[in-house]
Structure formats: C-alpha cells, structure tokens
C-alpha cells in the first residue's frame, strides 16, 4: 500500500490518535477505577451493588481504550514502546495485576458462594482499582520527567501516584451523582466536593513543576506568541474548577437538575489537563529523547492502519453511543435474564 499522505504527517496523526485513545482511557476507565476505590466508603452492600452495577456494562469496553493506546504506541512507535515499557517494567506489572484483580472481581463477586466470599472479592475489587490507578499515576510522573534518575523525580512520581487516584475518585463521584439517587447520591456529592480541592492542587503542581524542570517546556509556554495564545487553557481550567465548586456546593438541586454537570465538568478538566501535557511534550514521544519522527514505523504499514482506523473508528463510536443509551439513566440491578 502506498502512503496517501506526506510521510512527515503520518507520525503526527498517529501521535494524535494515540493521545486520543489514552485520553479516552483515562476518562472512561478513570471513573471505573474511581468507583472501585470508593467502594469501601459505601454505607452497605446495597450501595456497593449499585456502585458496581453503574460501571458493569462499561468497564470492559472502557479498558479496551488502553489496549488501543498501548497498541498504537507499539505499532506506530515501536522503538519508543520498547524504551517506555522497559523503563516502567515493574509499574506496568503492578498495574496489570491491579487490572486483572479488578476485572475478575467483577465476575467473581457476582457469582460468590456466600457473604464472606463476596466481601473478599469486594476487597479485591478495591485493591485492584487502587493498584491500577496508583501505578498509572506513578508511570505518568516518571514519564513527565523523562525517566529522570534523581530522588526529586521519584518524589514527583510518588505524588503523581497519590494524585491520579484522587482524580479518578473525583470523576467517579461525579459519575455516581449522575447515575444514582437518594443517600448514595448525597454521599457521592460529598466525595466529589472533597476531592475537587486536591485535584486542583495536583493540576497546579504539575503546571508549576514541568516548566521549572525543563527549559524547553518553559519556552513552549512562556515565549511569545504562545504565552498569549495558550492563556485560555489555564483560564478555562481555573473557571471550570471554580464553577464546579459552586455547582457542587448546592447539590442536589430540585428535580435532580444539573445531575450530568459534574461528570461532564470533570471530563472537561481531564481534557484540559491532558491537552496542556500534550502541548508540553510535542513532538517528543519519549520526553527529551525521542521525537515522533525518530520513533515512527514504516509509512506503508502506518497508512494501512490509518485506513482501517478511519473506516472502523466511527463504527466503534456509534455502537459505544448505542450502549451508553441502552444503559443510560439511573442505575438498575444488573441481571442476565
């Protein structure tokens, strides 16, 4: 197959696709994992049932975005894939163990022998979600500082390992506000309010640290004309945080009005933060080491994948919307028959 695009463009398009897949994963599995982390905070088994049921029809497809993201890294930037995954070897293993535990706990909990067995799988659900979220945070922290070996870089990764689970808890609480009612919804509103502060702090921390440690990133943000062109990004983030805070303070509203708002607001925050990071790193795929073009696979193979992606991705989006509509509204009991 001959490339139907200037070869220089292909790596950029694939980087954008990969970034979109990772962003979709972080948002979608973010709320799944957050629900898992919030599980011990539920009042009783009925609440835990509803929390788990709220993500039941979604978690599997949500997790697939991770496979697509790492798959695109693998196929489009094989050299970078090798470097990143061997650098993060242990963290990846921990994340996988977490995802395995979370994924199977869902099934095993539903088919448990007795209450004790059920509680055990709930514990596995929680532990798996937390492990996966924390190790993803660690990987993010290591990646942002280009796998730097100083202790400060590890301290930063540790903070990211604490921060990302809190961000997941935040979007999960917003999800539960939308999908649940009654006492559980009231609790979710409180969780959402409590986690917003740390999320704002985390975003601030990353925004301050990255330009400080890298002159290149500093110049990307603070040289003309970028400092003007990019100003809307932090401004929008700040406005969104303040707006969410105001909305959450008076929730729930009569008639459950604005129930969607915190979730889509949280999605907005994730998108803004992600865009900021992406801007800082472009065009590096391994920070400070390897650019998109240096790491890209052969253009013929990339063209073939791109053709498939252009054809299939709209179909995937269409049936994802279908599933969201079928399982929309307030959560109901999940049963096979």
């Amino acid at each position: 197959m001959t490339p139907f695009l200037p070869p220089d463009w292909l790596p950029v398009i694939f980087a954008a696709l990969m970034a979109a897949a990772v962003l979709a994963y972080v948002v979608l599995d973010g709320f799944d994992l957050g629900v898992g982390i919030l599980l011990p905070a539920a009042a009783d088994e009925g609440e835990r049932d509803r929390m788990i049921a709220s993500i039941g029809p979604f978690w599997d497809a949500n997790e697939t975005w991770l496979v697509l993201g790492v798959g695109l890294l693998l196929v489009a930037f094989p050299t970078a894939h090798g470097i990143v995954l061997t650098q993060l070897y242990l963290a990846v293993a921990v994340m996988l163990a977490g995802l395995i535990l979370r994924g199977v706990a869902f099934e095993f909990r539903g088919k448990a022998a007795d209450r004790r067995d059920r509680r055990r799988w709930e514990a596995a659900f929680f532990a798996g979600s937390l492990l996966a979220a924390a190790s993803q945070g660690w990987m993010l922290g290591r990646y942002i500082l280009g796998f730097d070996g100083h202790w400060q870089a590890y301290a930063f990764a540790l903070m990211a390992a604490i921060g990302l689970p809190i961000a997941y808890v935040f979007i999960a609480a917003a999800w539960l506000i939308w999908r649940t009612e009654g006492a559980l919804q009231t609790r979710a509103i409180r969780w959402c309010r409590l986690s917003l502060g740390p999320v704002a702090f985390g975003i601030l921390l990353v925004s301050v640290v990255t330009p400080l440690v890298s002159d290149r990133i500093f110049d990307r943000w603070f040289s003309l004309p970028y400092v003007v062109l990019l100003a809307p990004l932090p401004a929008a983030t700040l406005a969104l945080i303040l707006g969410l805070n105001a909305v959450l303070r008076h929730m729930p509203y009569p008639g459950d009005a604005l129930r969607h708002l915190p979730f889509w607001g949280a999605v907005g925050l994730f998108v803004l933060s992600f865009t900021g990071l992406a801007w800082s790193f472009f065009p590096y795929v391994v920070p400070e080491r390897l650019t998109l073009w240096q790491a890209a696979a052969a253009p013929e193979s990339l063209s073939l994948i791109l053709a498939g992606a252009i054809l299939v991705l709209p179909v995937i989006l269409a049936y994802t919307v279908l599933a969201w509509r079928i399982f929309g509204g307030k959560v109901r009991e999940l049963r096979y028959d």
């Binding site: 697509l68 798959g71 196929v75 992606a309 995937i316 994802t320 279908l322 599933a323």
Partner: peptide
Amino acid sequence: GPLLAYEVLTAFFLEATFLAIMLF
C-alpha cells in the same frame, strides 16, 4: 503492527461493547 491493530479495531471493541448488551 497492522495485524494487531486490526485485531483491536475489528474485534476487541466489538466484543466488549456488545457483550454488555448480550449480558445485561
């Protein structure tokens, strides 16, 4: 690469999404 990518695109999302409809 392309073979694995086509597996994700044509199989994984399809299975995962319609499994939810099939099960629940």
